[in-house]
Each structure stands twice: as C-alpha cells, then as structure tokens.
Amino acid sequence: MTRRPGSRSWLPRRLRGWVDPFVLAILAMLLVGVLVPIPDGVQAVLGTASSLAVSLLFLLYGARLPTREVGRSLRDWRLQGGLLAATFVVYPLLGVVVAFLATPLVGPGIAAGLLCLSLLPSTVNSSIAFTSVARGDVAGAISGATVSNVVGLVLTPLLVLGLMSGSAGIGLDGAGVGGVQTVLLRLLLPFAVGQLLQPWVGERVRRTRWLTQLVDRGTILLIVLTAVSGATAQGVWSGLGVWSVVALVGACAVLLAAVLAVTWWGGRALGLDRERRITLLLCGSMKSLATGLPIVAALLPAATIGLVAVPIVIYHQLQLVVCSIIARRSAAGQA
C-alpha cells in the first residue's frame, strides 16, 4: 500500500486520529528540556533563534493571507461577532474562574498558564479542518480564524497585560509593557510587511504550504525547548508533582467543556443555523498553539514561560482529541 506524504500510517491503527505526531514532537522537546542540561551559551543561541523564527513565521502569515478575506469575513456579524466574543470575552472570563479555583491544586505558575491560554486567539488549520469534517460553514471558519488571529496580535497582549499583571508568580510589571512593544516589533511589524508583499508573493507562499508548516512547527518546537530548558535551569519544576499534573488536566477539561457548552447554546441564542453553530462551536472553543505561544514568549519574563507553556501544550492536545470526536459524530449525525 502506498503511503501518502504526511500521512500518519506509521502509527498503530487504534491511535490514528487520537495522537498527533506534532504533539509527540512537542512532548519530546518537553522531555529534552527537562532531562538534558543545556549550557547557558547554547540557551542564548536557542533564544535568539526562537525570536528570529517567530518573526519569519509572522512574515509568512502576512504574505499568505489575502487582505480581502478579512473584509469579507466581517459581513456575517452574528457568526463573526460570536466567534470574537467567545474567544476574547467568554474564554477569558471562564479562564479567570478556572485559574482561581485551580491555584491551590496546581500552584500559581501553572494557574497563570491556565489563565494565559484562555487569552489566546483561535486556531486556524485545526478549527477549519474540524469544521469541514463536521459539515459546518467552512467559509465562515476560514474568515473567523483569520480575524481571530489578526485581532489577537493586538488584543491578546492587552488582555495579558490587563489580567495577568497581578498573577502570583508572574510579576509582569515593566516586562508586560515591554512585552507589548516586543509583540508589535517582532510579530505585528513582520505581519504588516508580509501583507504589503502579499500581492506579489502571496500566491507563491500559498502554493508552498510546506514552507509555512516547516517554519510554523519548527518555531513551536524551538520555543518549547527554550522555555522548558530555561525553567529547568532555574529549578521551577521541583514543586510540580503527579497530582498537580492530574489536577491540571482536569482543569483543562473543565474549561474546554464549559466553552463548548457556551458556544453551542450561544449559537442557538444568536439564531444561527446548524452549519454556523458547528462553526461557532469548533472555532470558538479552540486556542492556537502556533500563534499563541510566540505571543506568550514575547510577553512574559523568560523565567515564567516554561510553567505557563505547560497548560497551553496540554490543552492543545486535549482540544484536538475532543473536537475531533465532536466533528466525526456531527458528520455521522448528518449522514
């Protein structure tokens, strides 16, 4: 049997659709960062490489995205307004509550990570793919994910600065303001340059999807390795035990379940048809690792990124598994 490029056929059949090879790579970087001592000089090189990779990633994002899609997406105000409200209003409110309740169980650093993940923009590729599988409004998903990520470049840093400045164990203070400036220079400026270049290079960038995917995934792996190895060098993992991990997974599950319920029933309250309710459910309930982690890395002090990144990584895998099941069952129900 011929294997398609990029297929998951090397995984056991029972694991296909449940385990993302990229998530396995992230977990491998986590283990390396925890178990392998990395010299200070190498750590500095990794940090510089991560910063450059992030800027390149957002340059490619800007070059790939047709500007007209942003304008087109604003026409369906109920769906797009619902997606933005779910991502940047409902999620943060729930994140504040879950982080507060989880602090005694997981500690202030991990709890800050729970709050932080609730402030991130929506995914792009995953939410669109799941919406397609579930037979939702794919055009609305593309537009909503696009707008979420563009708005997130500005709104996520402001939310982090506003809601996390007083988080125990984070201590943004001056780093938060400097982090917003870093986001503007390292992320938003390359994105704007990419948008300016888009009429000339956009089609070529969209055809070479492997390039964006390579930079996308390579950037995430670099950030995870740099953040976790830095946290290891500072001994921040000493207070994180087995039960803390169990409590963290439970808190992530509670947060995801609450958002899924709000987006599904909220879609009915907005008068959306089934296709658009599916889009609101799957796009409004997901958080972006690819866009979010670079923003977090630019905003937070280096000493705290490792702990904050752990809930984001765990939540990413959990939402992939849960939303995959929802998409398949939704499609089966409409068959």
Rank of each mutant, 00 (worst) to 15 (best):
M1A: 09
T2K: 13
S7A: 05
R8F: 14
P12H: 03
R13F: 14
W18K: 03
P21F: 00
V23F: 08
A25M: 10
L30D: 01
G33Y: 15
G33R: 09
V34F: 15
V34N: 10
V36C: 05
V36E: 10
I38C: 04
I38H: 15
P39D: 08
D40F: 10
D40G: 07
A53D: 02
V54Q: 01
V54D: 02
L56V: 12
V70E: 06
G71H: 13
R72G: 05
R75Y: 15
V89M: 14
L93Q: 09
L94Y: 13
L94A: 05
V96P: 02
A102F: 13
P104Q: 03
L105I: 04
G107A: 02
G107I: 00
G109V: 12
I110K: 01
L119V: 00
L120V: 04
P121I: 00
S122L: 01
S122P: 12
T123W: 00
S127Y: 03
I128C: 02
I128P: 03
T131L: 00
T131W: 04
S132Y: 07
S132H: 06
V133P: 02
A134L: 08
V138C: 05
A139H: 06
I142W: 11
S143L: 04
A145F: 02
T146Y: 12
G152P: 06
L161I: 08
G162Y: 10
M164T: 01
S165N: 13
G166S: 03
G166K: 10
L172C: 06
L172Y: 13
G176P: 04
Q181D: 12
L188I: 04
P190I: 08
Q198T: 01
P199Y: 02
R206Y: 14
R209C: 11
L211T: 12
T212N: 07
Q213K: 15
Q213I: 14
L214D: 09
T219I: 02
L221K: 11
L222W: 04
A227K: 02
V228G: 07
V228A: 03
A231Y: 10
T232W: 15
Q234L: 13
S238A: 13
L240W: 09
W243H: 01
S244R: 10
V246Q: 09
V249D: 06
G250A: 05
V259F: 01
T263Y: 13
L282I: 11
S285A: 08
M286N: 07
K287A: 01
L289T: 08
A290W: 02
A302M: 03
T304G: 07
T304F: 14
V310D: 05
I314T: 12
H316K: 15
V321L: 04
C323N: 01
C323T: 05
C323A: 12
S324H: 00
I326C: 05
I326S: 00
R329N: 09
R329Y: 15
A331R: 07
Q334G: 03
